[in-house]
Amino acid sequence: MKKYYLHNGVESSGPFDLSELEIKQITATTPVWFSGLPDWKTAAEIEELQVLLKVSPPPFKTLEPETEKIAKEKVKKSKIMGLHKNTFYLVLLFVVLFIGSFVLNILEENRKEELSKINHQTEIENRQFLLKERELKEQNERLAEQQRLEEERIAKEKKDTINKRLSEIQIGKIEIQTLLDEAKNKLIKANNFQLFRTPDEKSREINALQAEISHLKSELEILDNERNQLELELERLH
């Protein structure tokens, strides 16, 4: 006896014989397969299963009275999308208000986020400005310190040079003063010594000694002026 398999769209069931298929109440679109059939077919496509198919009459539509039909049409016209107009407009207003509130919240959040970004960027720029300002201040302080040290070094070198020159001047004055004292003694002796000399020789010797004394005094005066200037310069350096 031929056996049939059914499929409900998810899984297959069977095998069933014709009497069992009658109990299953299959329809024309029920998928059926049996041995020797290359692929599933609907029950309506298998000849021996025609007797099992049940024909269901369409649902009976009662005739509505004219007044009831008109009333339903009025109710239908007074509705939008299945809702009364007033209810529909209230729902629409609520939806519009909700969407508007949602959009405003999004805009407010975006504005807050933008302000937060601006404030964060401003804070970063302020920190960078303060950092650069501090670096510039430290650089100026280092330059000022270097300049101060350089000025102190130059001043010290000047002081050392001046003190060295003052020592040289002091030594020079002692030497010139010694020569000056010797020239004065020679002039005294030349004025008093008269043996073995003519008046012209005596006069020439006296003139030479006087010229030497004048020259030595001039050199002493020059050294004194230089010493005074150096001492003033040394005071300014202090």
Rank of each mutant, 00 (worst) to 15 (best):
Q50A: 15
V91N: 14
I169K: 00
E22M: 06
L232I: 14
E114M: 11
E151H: 10
N140W: 04
Y5I: 05
T29Q: 09
N192H: 05
P59M: 06
R165E: 09
E108D: 08
S203C: 02
V95H: 07
E109Q: 09
A211G: 09
P65Y: 11
S35I: 08
S56T: 15
F60A: 05
I162Q: 01
E113G: 09
S78G: 15
N105I: 07
H7G: 02
E152V: 08
L107G: 07
G82K: 03
E20W: 02
L166K: 03
P59H: 06
L149W: 11
D200T: 12
R236K: 11
E73F: 02
R153G: 02
K202Y: 02
Q194P: 00
V32F: 06
E226L: 01
Q146R: 09
L49H: 04
I222N: 15
L234V: 02
A211M: 10
T30W: 01
P15H: 08
P59V: 08
L53E: 04
Q121F: 10
L216A: 01
E221R: 12
R165K: 14
F34E: 07
E221I: 12
Q25L: 10
I206S: 05
N185D: 09
K61N: 15
L149E: 15
E150W: 07
G14K: 03
M1S: 12
I169N: 03
A144N: 09
F98R: 08
L234H: 00
I80G: 01
I70C: 05
L130T: 12
T62D: 10
T42G: 05
P38W: 01
L97T: 10
P31G: 04
E64G: 05
L230R: 01
E47N: 13
E48K: 13
A71V: 10
L136Y: 04
E226Y: 00
E141V: 06
I162N: 00
E125K: 08
T27W: 03
D39A: 14
N86W: 06
L90P: 00
L53K: 03
